[in-house]
Design a protein around this nucleic acid. Structure first.
Length: 268
DNA sequence: CCTCTATGGCGAA
DNA sequence: TCGCCCTAGAGGC
């Protein structure tokens, strides 16, 4: 679920329900109770997405920080007028509720109430976010072009650029015919500019679709409106055979996780 | 019912 | 590099 596109989508979806309103904040599971009390009933001014981080700007000056990690999920329920709040299902770390909706957060890696300067400290450790209009791609491109690290490792390094996860790194490299083990410094500036562009467009599409679909449907030969199944929506990620040429997909461990690639379409 | 997996990231070695 | 945290859905029996 959560690469950068998920977080940006959540930010805009949740903003429609919460921003400008007084929000009840609680922790049915209990682990977030003390922090929740700091902002319970406060007005939410803004929700900000930065890479895989979500920041909730409260009018009091507190800033909520959420990182979904691998398992975190939000569930949104809309309430009809006068409807009582539903009983939480499972382990709900944080519940945000208004008279018209309830948003439950389960399984996050991080969920805490910070100050603005703590939020800044997190952001300072991040590279440019391709989904943000204030992103400076040159920062990422320069860093990659000086690095002896593999592209597959650099794309997953949130301090180089942020928001890309294990699916998008594999798919973006595939689309550009780049082997994941190619070193950053062995990649031309032109190739890196194009790679950045690929990441931007893939993530943007992910926000729109609210899921990861990197394949061009025309290459699939399926009717254009059928919803793609999981495993149909990528060229190499988690596939046995390359969607384009049928070659068996290989993986190489980079940044501690398997990077899927096609040895034929992405020669070293 | 159970076991396995997952689109992350941290801190201890 | 490894272990660990956290949850839910899928699939097997």
């Amino acid at each position: 679920m959560p690469e950068g596109h998920t977080i940006h989508r959540i930010a805009s979806d949740h903003a429609k329900l919460l921003v400008g309103r007084s929000v009840s904040v609680s922790s049915p599971q209990g682990r977030f109770s003390a922090d929740a009390a700091l902002v319970d009933g406060d007005v939410l001014d803004r929700i900000e997405a930065y890479g895989k981080h979500l920041f909730l700007w409260w009018r009091s000056g507190y800033v909520g920080h959420v990182h979904l990690g691998l398992f975190g999920r939000f569930r949104v329920q809309k309430l009809t007028i006068g409807e009582a709040e539903p009983v939480p299902v499972g382990a709900v770390r944080m519940r945000l509720s208004t008279t018209s909706s309830v948003i439950d957060l389960a399984g996050p890696t991080a969920c805490a109430i910070f100050t603005a300067s703590e939020r800044d400290a997190i952001v300072d450790r991040l590279g440019p976010d391709p989904l943000r209009s204030d992103a400076q791609p040159a920062r990422a491109i320069e860093r990659i072009s000086r690095s002896g690290q593999a592209l597959g490792a650099l794309l997953l390094d949130q301090s180089v650029l942020c928001g890309v996860g294990n699916v998008y790194r594999a798919e973006a490299l595939f689309v550009n015919g780049l082997h994941p083990s190619r070193r950053g410094r062995d990649t031309s500036p032109d190739e890196l500019v194009t790679l950045w562009g690929t990441v931007v467009s893939m993530l943007c599409k992910g926000v729109k679709d609210n899921r990861i679909v990197t394949v061009d449907r025309r290459e699939l030969g399926v009717s254009s409106n059928r919803r793609l199944r999981r495993g149909e929506a990528t060229y190499v990620y988690h596939r046995d055979l390359c969607l384009r040429c049928g070659t068996p997909i290989q993986t190489v461990k980079l940044a501690g996780r398997p990077c899927y690639y096609c040895p034929r379409c992405q020669p070293s």
